[in-house]
Write a protein that binds this DNA or RNA. Structure first.
Length: 483
RNA sequence: GGGCCAUUAGCUCAGUUGGUUAGAGCAUCCGCCUUUUAAGCGGAGUGUCGAAGGUUCGAGUCCUUCAUGGCCCA
């Protein structure tokens, strides 16, 4: 701690925490990108001290601002002995405002010859090592501010994340989609299968659940006459933490009336190819050593057909849970003994079909028993008009022609309630209000869900979801009871 | 939930078959230095070796439990 230096400064009448503003006239990147315009000009720059190189009666100080770094030169004969004496208390990490003229050193470095400087804040703690940065992953996630300060590539990841979401909003606005906000706190959490987080509302004295999907409320809005709606929002699933899972993550869901899953496929192709082009300047993206081509049309793979090609077994020939578990054993795939037929088959597809889907590929025609909210294919009623987009072997998006038959929907929900009674606590309770909405008539609609975190992982070549979430969920240090 | 690995100075890391007072670089502190930039030169201090217990004459090192994280599997 540098309390001593702070006290010395205060003893000299300088409180580094007192300044309330500092009017900046240029950024470091301005000076670097158009030096000719700034040469000899007076500028005001502010930033964090990242390096100090003293030279007796002069010194170099590197200031970091949001766009990069700028070197500053302080000479005792220019700033004056009183100001220069204050550099005695300067530390790495301090925030400084300087005013001076722009020049180049004999080595060609763009530099500000400081005429005056001002402490704008004092750092009482040491910065991590300037050469190695901060590599301890635990500290990087727990103290992300330090990670961002000393590891510039981390800034780039979150810049891409921000621009990705900005691009999506603009893309959808151009297609006349309306952005909406639906509730996070709900008396029941539905729209997919996952364990929800539960909390308690004191005034109503009731349990409320954090949403696990956006689907059922957005479809209510389609019933209400908003024909193109979307939400980019946080959803919460009470599951384990891994490189691919964070308990809270960000989903895009959109619904478009009077189109089907083919229309959504085209939209996904346009959105992703446009996004990659926008961020990369090309349709190719490198992820973990593989080059991915985002040029439409994307490949298409029929799920049931591909399973048959891979295993010689047809989905519909597996008629019972016992058959399914035997099928899994034959393939040498370990599955939870409590899984029912559909869950086992889903797991098998995940093992034998999905890993091959490296280039952007629509895996489509999911069986109805794993697609409770998707419309049946009229030609194959046991299959649905559904697709998942896979990239690099991972699910990136999920879409279907939305089931709008309230009677079929009720039957499927009732079948789910059987599983719920059998102890599957990932199955949501029956949402009677949603059924009531469907009973008033929902137009034919195409819907899409995209995992934004996984998308950003792809776009930033990040192997872990924690790398694309600023503050990932971590177990607190020490006992949780101490907090 | 299971397996493997990691945890040593503010940061990044060494530390031999158990053996004297636990080391290096950066950062920090003191001195010098007016175009350096991994600045340089001279000097100094770094510490609950993740925590607790155990084995031993002796533990950073071996054993047990726990904590946190990583990787793989479920």
């Amino acid at each position: 701690m540098r309390i001593g230096k702070l006290q010395e400064l205060r003893a000299r009448g300088i409180n580094p925490y007192q300044p309330t503003r500092f009017d900046v006239t240029a950024s470091s990147s301005d000076l670097h990108s158009s030096y000719e315009r700034w040469e000899g000009q007076s500028v005001r720059i502010a930033g964090r001290v990242m390096a100090i190189r003293t030279h007796g009666r002069a010194m170099f100080v590197d200031l970091a601002d949001e766009g990069g770094k700028i070197q500053c030169h302080l000479r005792e004969d220019i700033v004056g002995p009183e100001q220069f004496a204050l550099t005695e208390y300067l530390d790495l990490g301090d925030i400084l405002g300087v005013e001076g003229t722009v020049f180049k050193t004999r080595r060609g470095e763009v530099t500000v010859e400081v005429h005056e400087f001002q402490y704008l804040s004092k750092s009482l703690m040491d910065l991590p090592d300037k050469r190695h940065g901060l590599t301890n992953v635990d500290l990087r996630y727990r103290q992300r501010y330090l990670d961002l300060l000393v590891n510039p590539e981390v800034r780039r990841v979150f810049d891409v994340r921000s621009r990705t979401i900005g691009f999506i909003r603009q893309f959808l606005a151009e297609r006349r989609f309306m952005e909406v906000e639906t509730p996070v706190l709900l008396p029941l959490a539905g729209g997919t299968e996952a364990r929800p987080f539960a909390t308690h509302h004191n005034a109503l004295d009731m349990t409320l659940y954090l949403r696990i999907a956006l689907e059922l409320h957005l479809k209510r809005l389609i019933v209400g006459g908003f024909d193109r709606v979307y939400e980019i929002g946080r959803v919460f699933r009470n599951e384990g933490i891994s490189t691919k899972h964070n308990p809270e993550f960000t989903m895009l869901e959109l619904y478009q009336a009077y189109t089907d899953y083919h229309g959504i496929m085209r939209l996904v192709e346009d959105l992703l190819s446009g996004l990659v082009q926008y961020l990369q300047g090309s349709a190719d993206l490198e992820y973990q050593g593989q080059v991915l081509h985002f040029t439409p049309p994307f490949d298409q793979v029929d799920m049931v057909e591909r399973l048959f090609e891979k295993t010689g077994v047809r989905w519909e020939d597996i008629r019972s849970g016992e058959d399914a578990h035997q099928f899994a054993r034959d393939l040498g795939i370990a599955v939870d003994a409590r899984f029912d037929r559909a869950q086992v088959l889903d797991k098998i597809v995940g093992q034998v079909v999905e890993p091959d889907l490296v280039q952007p590929t629509f895996l489509w025609h999911h069986p109805v028993d794993i697609s409770p909210l998707a419309k049946r294919d009229p030609a194959y009623p046991q299959l649905t008009e559904r697709f998942e987009l896979f990239v690099a072997g991972r699910e990136l998006a999920n879409a279907f022609s939305e089931l709008n038959d309230p009677l079929d929907q009720r039957e499927r929900f009732l079948a789910q309630q059987e599983q719920r009674r059998e102890g599957n606590d990932e199955v949501p309770p029956l949402d009677e209000d949603f059924l009531n909405a469907l009973e008033h008539g929902m137009p034919p609609t195409g819907g899409l869900g995209v995992g934004i975190d996984r998308l950003v992982m792809l776009l930033t070549n990040s192997p872990s979801i924690k790398d694309v979430i600023l503050f990932p969920t971590m177990r607190p240090l020490g006992s949780a009871d101490d907090l």
